[in-house]
Design a protein around this nucleic acid. Structure first.
Length: 265
DNA sequence: GGCCTTGAAACGGCAGACTC
DNA sequence: GAGTCTGCCGTTTCAAGGCC
């Protein structure tokens, strides 16, 4: 089944986005509220009126919050899929470009054309059935055109169709261990098969990936609880655990005390 | 009522053997 | 050298209960 190219989000309370592998370029307009993106390159904050382009094949996490006046967090995201970009490139005679090495998350300077483009998508929020596949394709093409005219530098990002290459595993893992994704995703994003990933990991860290990841995450959690006085319930998602009960058990196994006991010291 | 821990069941990763 | 398969075991999830 075809995935929708356009996603509408609305949250009345703060939410911790658990979608972490960005598989397609995502162009987002924030209608109200704020969002904080955590990526391997650091934190980026965006607010109502901002437009953001998040490039594919990276790990990212978003914390969405309502505005200070109580407005819910609302956004519109259009995914610029590899299929759509390849079709566009073929129609326009654009060759695939060399590997893109610029920033992986870009705040765009709003202009009248992009603003009008997102305004044209908002009526479909209440009538999603009217947004047919044909209309989605048209909107995707329009978005590509507008991005290219807004910033020619984006050409290199949009038309880089290469897959992740074999990158330095040690620095990649140290940057990304806080993201809770499957080993197959870590392997893919580091440019390796799962088998090669495990072999290289053993060479680099002398541990299995799981054991190393767990230790790194627990050490970070210990620091946040002990030094930053944060609670276990605030920390476990941030360091890459999915479940508070498992976090609590693993923490006690490593440090001999419950997370709450460390915070009290 | 919120926060945290415990225990059982289900799931996913590890390790070794094998193939290409 | 790199990828695939499979059995076993550690890890994760979920529900229930304890503590403050």
């Amino acid at each position: 089944m075809r995935k929708s190219a356009i996603l509408y989000s609305c949250y009345y309370q703060g939410t911790f986005d658990r979608e972490k592998v960005v598989e397609e370029h995502a162009l987002t307009f924030i209608q109200s509220g704020t969002v904080r993106f955590t990526t391997p390159d650091g934190l980026k904050n965006y607010q109502a009126g901002d437009m953001v382009l998040v490039s594919r094949n990276q790990l990212a996490r978003g914390e969405k919050s309502p505005g200070s006046s109580g407005d819910p967090f609302k956004s519109v995201t259009i995914y610029l899929t590899q299929d759509a970009l390849r079709r566009y490139a073929a129609e326009k005679g654009i060759d695939a470009l060399p590997r893109y090495s610029g920033p992986r998350i870009l705040g765009l300077t709003p202009n009248a054309f992009l603003s009008a483009f997102f305004a044209s998508l908002l009526p479909y929020y209440d009538h999603p059935g009217s947004l047919t596949p044909a209309l989605q394709d048209l909107k995707t093409t329009e978005a590509i055109e507008l991005l290219l005219s807004a910033g020619p530098a984006l050409r290199g990002l949009l038309f880089d169709f290469s897959e992740p290459h074999k990158i330095d595993l040690e620095s990649f893992m140290l940057k990304n261990f806080e993201f809770n994704v499957a080993l197959t995703e870590f392997a893919r994003l580091s440019g390796r098969s799962l088998s090669t990933f495990k072999r290289d990991f053993q060479k680099a860290f002398a541990l299995t990936p799981e054991k190393w990841l767990k230790t790194q995450r627990l050490e970070k959690a210990y620091y946040l609880i002990k030094e930053k006085h944060q609670k276990a319930s605030d920390v476990y998602l941030r360091v890459g655990f999915e479940n508070l009960s498992h976090f609590s058990t693993a923490f006690k196994e490593l440090y001999g005390v419950n997370p709450s006991a460390v915070g009290e010291r």
